[in-house]
Amino acid sequence: MIKNIKEINIKTLAKKVVQDYSYWLSFVLLVIIAASMNPFFFTWNNITNIFVQSAMIGIIAMGMSMVISAGQIDISVGSQVALLGGFGIQVLNATNSPWIMLIFCVLGGAIIGTVNGLLVSKGHMPAMVATLAMQTTCRSIINFYGQGGPFTVKRELYDSFRQIAVGGIEIGSIKIPFMMIIFIVVSIIFAIIMKRTKLGKHIYAVGSNETSARLAGINVDFVKTIVFTITGMCCGLTAVLYASRLTAVASANAAFGYEMEAIAAVAIGGTAMTGGKGKITGTFLGVLMFKIISNILTSADVSSFLNGAISGTIIVVAVLLQNFQNKKK
């Protein structure tokens, strides 16, 4: 055994690292660049900031990772957040309970996601078409109820509700923000689901080869549906965080472009857009990388109006690199 390990050529080892852990390499590279531009990069404050800023996209990206690993795609996530957030605030205002709001949003997300999933699995629709229809439907419903304007949290709840997004646990002099904790916990749950549960194995199997998966006894339709359901639930959780952070959900442009940012994060994380391959750690780092890149660009005075162009470029570059790598093999 030991002999075997020694025999492994350093060159092949390096090749394997580059192939399987390229997202770690790019992450380290990116951190070095960012640190050289920003002397305060390694301060606790800055690090927690990156996590807090990443949390919302990050939670959606976890669901997106699942959907893409199953060979599907969901471009309705941004609109789902807007719809659930808007109605969620009304539930909050009516009940005064953020917990009821959370249950409402997560359940609502599960329902929307399941509809997406059934359209794809039972309706045999391409995921792109089904979720595009869901995207415009959700956005237009929330626009209709909000008459284009925002849904705002009522004054009395303002301070307490905002704590979810800005609060944290203080240990001595350092503060760990709730957003950061939620993001990390969700990521760990997803990592475990994808790596160590039956569902995770099934998702990769379906994304890899549907026919083979079916003949191995996997309920392909169920898998295709549940990935959308779970993504919907992620949108529900994100909707609560979004409402808390902004204390208002503007129906027309809330969470606009989240689908592209989430897909970009999954892509730089090394998940294959064709399904079957990918790691949650990759997506986790992908989300952070995405945020670091946009922070670098912001500090270089690049307008935030260019966010869409940035995520578009990142997706294209990441997928091109993946394809290039696969071809070389």
Binding site: A205, S208, T211, L215, A216, G276, K277
Partner: peptide
């Protein structure tokens, strides 16, 4: 190739998927 193996998955996963399912 088309109906048996799960081509992106590891040898482990390809072997254990039957047991895991049943």
């Amino acid at each position: 190739k088309e109906r048996g193996i799960l081509n992106d998955l590891s040898i482990y996963d390809n072997l254990s998927i039957g047991f895991i399912n049943t």
